[in-house]
Amino acid sequence: MRIAIASGKGGTGKTFLAVNLALKAAETQTTLLMDLDVEEPNGGIFIQADAADVHKVTRAIPIWDPGACNLCGKCISWCKFNAIIKLGEMILVMPPLCHSCYACSELCPMQALPMEQQSLGEIRHLKLGKLDFTESKLDIGLEQSSPLIERTLEFADEHFGDKELQLLDSPPGTACAMVSAVKTVDYVILISEPTPFGLFDLNLAVETVRQLGLPFSVVINRDGIGNNDIYKYLEKEKIQLLAKIPHQREIAEMYSRGEIIYQQVPAVDEALNQILSKIRSLS
């Protein structure tokens, strides 16, 4: 069972829920948590172990062969991502802009742009009892999240396919990176908060998962702030409200210290129980 925890915007408690849910689930079942917020992964602040193994992730990039090139410049006009430029008699490929589509490499009449594997980022893996945790991080200067997210999911299939529960802490927003992470899962849990900002962003996230045809339900964080509009929205849209996590200043304080919360706050523990019983009913 693979489940994504997602939200329309950042800062709604996505990592908080993913980390606490994973640790709680791992008390009784083998669990994998993947932090796929590859631009700014923060799950590692909360889950720490003495030893971590690091896996390098690569992808194919065209490498210019000056000996073969006749400087015809066709590659530059083919590349829709402006990843190739010509400086005098030199062709320059810019890895941050390249989408690894192979067009320039395979269409080049001189075969002067062979594809080679280049570093994309890394996956840090660590183990804590029944929990396996991976954190993927893009190399500095690179900015396309989707390829690393896809590699991480493949990595998970290869090494952790046997885990009873696989949780994804997906990238925020509803753009390409979030879609890449979410489209492979069995179920999505959306987290939001009861404010007009939360409602607006939840609505975008709901439209996205609906368009992907995925089953989903919603967890409301910081219940008690704001107003009831989000609950009216859920009712009107016939969306299941899976759990509410109350708004308490002490939760924010514990979180800011990088602490695990459910063992300290019974209301959070209760919410996690509701979410886990839903998850277990799915399989």
Partner: peptide, 9 residues
């Protein structure tokens, strides 16, 4: 991805 490769070939 809109890379255009299919269009070229």
């Amino acid at each position: 991805e809109g890379c255009g490769y299919c269009y070229y070939v």
